[in-house]
């Protein structure tokens, strides 16, 4: 259905366009600018062509970080999406339990990233942290600052705790929009619990699930604050993700050119993967 055309409507979106221009487009142009030039300070720039890009793509450090990132996102999606669906399916749909559950679910989402990091850092400390100390006492020595596996477990658990709620809330919204008659019909058709999920709930949740997967992928792929606070990228470089590496390079070493080139490559990867996700998941709709 097409609408009556009204050019004045563009004025309404103007503020947003300006905001996006200042917050995204202009910084991005700056980054592009940096990525193709070299400088020795004093605001003197030289044309560097694709040198920085070649350097970034040739470095083992970049590829290691990228693989770590992909692995992290895969783990996060593999845990959070099924877990989120599972929790959403088991949330009450009527009565007093609904607001209680919703508030409980929304709580982790309301806590700032760095606070989440700090909470978990304290919890996991082997000397004073409940989890770290407890595990060590039970005979599982736990030291996220020393053991790469422990460091990963800490960050994954922290992220699951922080973000699964988002998946739950999105899926829940999809589930409650299914009319009661569908469940009744399924009962009458003798459908098993699994069949109800497979043929009614999953198809109806598909759209929100797609949004959940995209959001969780992009977020986990760009994870920064939590490892920065908890592990600082260590031990060694076991939790050094692209974003942490990038900041180290740009702010720590002040290598603006390579950092800018890396940002762009990073950006393109996120864009590409998101696009692939989206296309694959919406393909069925055209049938």
């Amino acid at each position: 259905m097409d609408k009556t055309w009204n050019n004045k409507a563009w004025f309404m979106v103007l503020p947003v366009l300006l905001l996006v221009a200042f917050s995204a487009v202009i910084p991005l142009m700056t980054v592009v600018n940096y990525s193709v030039q070299d400088t020795f300070g004093n605001n003197q720039f030289f044309w560097a062509g694709t040198d920085w890009f070649t350097q970034v793509l040739d470095s083992a450090r970049f590829w290691d970080s990228l693989v770590r990132n992909l692995a992290f996102s895969a783990v996060i999606l593999a845990i959070q999406i099924p877990l989120g669906i599972f929790i959403a399916l088991n949330m009450p749909r009527h009565g007093l339990g609904v607001p209680v559950c919703l508030i409980f679910m929304a709580l982790p989402l309301l806590i700032p990233w760095n606070v989440v990091g700090t909470i978990w850092q304290l919890l996991c400390r082997a000397d004073i942290g409940l989890v770290g100390w407890g595990l060590t006492q039970l005979g599982f020595p736990f030291a996220y600052a020393a053991d790469p596996v422990d460091a990963w477990v800490t960050i994954v658990v922290m992220d699951v705790w922080h973000w699964t709620s988002l998946v739950v809330l999105l899926c829940y919204a999809g589930l409650v929009s299914i009319p009661e008659a569908y469940y009744q019909a399924a009962k009458i058709d003798g459908a098993s619990r699994l069949a109800v999920f497979r043929y009614i709930q999953l198809p109806k949740m598909k759209r929100v699930l797609l949004i959940a997967i995209l959001l969780r992928f992009m977020d986990s792929f760009m994870i920064y604050t939590e490892p920065f606070v908890v592990t600082g990228g260590g031990p060694g470089s076991s939790t050094t993700f692209l974003s942490i590496d990038l900041v180290k390079m740009a702010v720590g070493q002040f290598d603006l050119g390579p950092a800018a080139a890396m940002s762009i490559v990073y950006f393109l990867i996120v864009l590409l993967l998101s696009w692939i996700f989206y296309t694959v998941m919406t393909q069925g709709d055209q049938a």
Partner: peptide, 21 residues
């Protein structure tokens, strides 16, 4: 007895179909 054990069929006011099938 629950619905599924009563061995009945029911047709609702608005069409209930399994979209993906």
């Amino acid at each position: 007895l629950p619905t599924e054990a009563r061995n009945i069929a029911q047709v609702f006011q608005f069409p209930v179909i399994y979209d993906t099938m």
